[in-house]
Amino acid sequence: MSMADRLNGVARKVPTGAVYLLFLLPAPWFFYLAANGQMGVEPINTLERKYGEMALQLLILGLAITPLRQYLGINLIRFRRAIGLLAFAYVAMHLLVWLVLDVGILSQIWADILKRPYITVGMGGFALMIPLAITSNNMSIRKLGPKWRKLHRLTYGVVLLGALHFLMLSKGFQLEPLIYAALIGGLLLTRLAPPKSMERARST
């Protein structure tokens, strides 16, 4: 049995509920650490960044599912909805930390959304995720038919905005946001050039 087959065998046995649980647990755990002085002396920014980082990592994981199957034969498609909704949950918590704990001043919140380009870009990413989260259920897939696939291509826009947001908020010339951007760029490129085997499969 190949590596991919073995992985697929394991993945088949994992209930999606376990994926939700596994990825949601860090959220209250981080909050607990931050509230109890175990996330450094500036827990607000640290927590905000942790949630943002989790959101971006989940978005990347979601983006990797199709190429993982196409190129390596690893099938995690069952978990894609969970990953997408989890990413949305982390962006929402990231935004909530910013709104309530970080800024907390209504006039300044508006000014920041309009005037700070990296916040505007982040908000754009969050806004695009709302219709995706709302339609991440079987009923919407049935109702929207082929339009659902089209709508969910917005994911590409969301990750691009997420990558841009990270690049813009980093001071100076930093490596980490560049690595994320490169990873996202690479995953998006796989959409432009599907692997040969798939083409062959399709044409025969």
Partner: peptide, 22 residues
């Protein structure tokens, strides 16, 4: 004076924990 990245109108004093106000 506005800064494109951070509003400079307010600040957070380090040491107030997770619920420190600006």
């Amino acid at each position: 004076v506005n800064h494109p990245r951070w509003s400079q109108a307010s600040e957070r004093r380090i040491g107030g924990g997770l619920f420190a106000k600006r």
